[in-house]
Amino acid sequence: MPETSPSGTVTALPSLAAQAERLIELGVHELAGIPADELRAFAANAGDEDGGALLAVHPDHAPASALAPLLRHDGKPGFVVTDMADVDDFAPCTVELPDAPLYLVTDLDRGDHMADWSPEEALPALAGQGRTPLLLTEGIHWVLQQSAILERNRCFMTIGSRLRKANGALDARTPAIWISNGTGRDGRERRNAPKVGWCWWGNRHTWLGFASATGRRR
């Protein structure tokens, strides 16, 4: 299990080389149309001076719907809730991504200290701390690399991804990653499976923090 601070800060992400091999093992490079050697070269040349950055594939190359089934918890694969068929339409909002298929996300924090905050409350607070909310795909990448970061009653939202409606307004759903209880439409067979779902913009949940980072770079 990775070491974490009380607020959920990871202190020991795998090396970038190890992260690249993990993505290759899972077939993420094939989903993204990126040769394995290119992924390895990026990891080798990126350096690791950030003290444990997360290697991420741009969501245009590897969308959430393709990544979610690769998640595992208690031996069960991840899934996207049935009422989020438009999951891949949740795009970066208030977040600027590097213009590259591969990039690094620095200084991850699970945001446990913001549990029982609403997304509406958390977003300006993160900005005030000089932090940026994770995208849904970045959150999935994090769990792919460190499955133990997803703990029952200590899961997280990824409010850097939002859905903009045709009229320009933002959808009130905000994405999150947690562990299914196997109730309702999830189905009993999915109990303890990693779940990509959503919560309302103005609602609070005691078991959801707000995952964030200090920045992104190529």
Rank of each mutant, 00 (worst) to 15 (best):
M1A: 14
P2D: 00
E3D: 14
T4P: 00
S5A: 13
S5E: 13
S5N: 14
S7C: 13
G8E: 01
A12V: 03
L13Y: 00
L16H: 06
A17Q: 14
A18T: 11
A18L: 11
A20Q: 10
E21Q: 14
R22N: 14
V28C: 05
E30R: 15
A32H: 03
P35I: 05
A36Y: 05
A41S: 15
A41G: 13
A43F: 05
A44T: 10
A44E: 13
N45G: 12
G47Y: 12
D48C: 08
E49W: 10
E49G: 15
D50N: 15
G51H: 08
G52E: 00
H58F: 02
H58L: 04
P59S: 09
P59D: 02
D60Y: 05
H61G: 03
A66F: 01
A68P: 00
P69C: 11
L70A: 06
L71Q: 02
R72W: 09
H73Q: 13
D74S: 14
F79T: 04
V80L: 07
V81R: 12
M84C: 07
D88Q: 08
D88M: 06
A91G: 09
A91W: 07
C93L: 13
T94K: 15
V95C: 04
D99T: 12
A100I: 07
A100L: 12
P101Y: 09
T106E: 07
D107I: 06
D107C: 09
L108Y: 05
L108F: 01
R110Q: 14
R110F: 09
D112N: 08
H113L: 05
W117E: 01
S118P: 05
A122W: 02
L123I: 11
P124T: 07
A127N: 10
A127Y: 08
R131G: 04
L136K: 01
T137S: 11
H141W: 05
W142Y: 10
Q145K: 06
E151W: 05
C155L: 10
M157G: 01
M157P: 03
T158Y: 07
G160D: 06
S161W: 03
R162G: 02
R164H: 13
R164Q: 14
K165G: 06
A166R: 15
G168D: 05
L170W: 14
A172Y: 08
R173Y: 04
R173L: 07
T174N: 12
P175F: 02
S180Y: 03
G184H: 15
R188D: 15
R188K: 15
R190H: 12
R191T: 08
A193W: 01
C199F: 09
C199G: 11
W201S: 14
T206H: 12
W207F: 15
W207M: 10
G209D: 00
G209S: 08
F210S: 06
F210R: 01
S212T: 05
T214W: 02
T214P: 03
T214L: 07
